[in-house]
Amino acid sequence: MKMQVFLPLATYPDANSDAVAANAVAVAVQLHADLHVLALHAKIPEVSTAFSHLLLDVPARIREAEAISRQAGGRLLAKVVEEGTRQGGSVTTASAAVLLAMQGEAAAEHARYFDLAITGWEPHNGTARMIAEGMIFGAGRPVMLLPDSASAATIEHIAIAWDGSRVAARAVADAMPLLARASKVHILTVVDEKPLKPSDDGERLAVSLRRRGLNADFAAISAEDCPIAVTLQDQAIERGADLLVMGGYGHSRVRDFVLGGATDGVLSDLRMPILMSH
Rank of each mutant, 00 (worst) to 15 (best):
K2Q: 14
A10W: 07
A15M: 08
A15N: 08
N16V: 05
N16A: 10
A19L: 13
A19G: 05
A21Q: 11
A22C: 14
A24K: 03
V29K: 13
V29R: 15
Q30E: 13
V37I: 01
H41Y: 15
A42H: 06
P45G: 07
V47S: 12
F51Y: 13
L54R: 14
L54M: 15
V58H: 00
P59M: 04
A60L: 02
I62Y: 02
R63G: 04
I68Q: 05
Q71H: 11
Q71I: 06
A72P: 01
A78L: 04
E82C: 14
E83S: 12
G84N: 08
R86A: 15
Q87F: 08
G88V: 05
G88K: 11
A94K: 11
S95W: 03
A97S: 10
M102A: 09
G104K: 02
R112T: 12
W121E: 09
H124Q: 12
T127S: 11
A128D: 07
R129Q: 09
R129I: 03
M130Y: 02
I131A: 08
E133I: 08
E133D: 14
I136W: 00
P142Y: 08
L145Y: 08
L146W: 05
L146K: 06
P147R: 07
S149R: 09
A152K: 05
S165V: 03
R166Y: 08
R166E: 10
A168P: 02
A169T: 12
A169I: 10
R170N: 11
A175I: 13
A175V: 09
M176D: 13
P177E: 10
L178T: 01
A180S: 10
S183Y: 05
K184Y: 06
H186S: 13
H186Y: 14
H186K: 09
I187K: 01
I187V: 15
I187C: 04
V190E: 05
V191F: 02
D192A: 13
K194P: 00
L196S: 10
S199D: 11
D201T: 01
D201G: 01
D201H: 08
R204Q: 15
R204I: 13
L205E: 12
L205I: 14
L205H: 13
V207K: 15
S208D: 13
L209E: 13
R210H: 10
R212E: 15
G213T: 09
G213M: 11
A216M: 12
D217R: 11
I221L: 07
A223P: 03
C226W: 04
P227V: 13
D234Q: 05
A236C: 03
A236H: 00
I237F: 00
R239V: 00
D242N: 04
Y249T: 01
G250T: 02
R253K: 14
V258L: 12
V258Y: 06
D264Y: 02
G265N: 09
R271M: 03
I274R: 00
L275G: 05
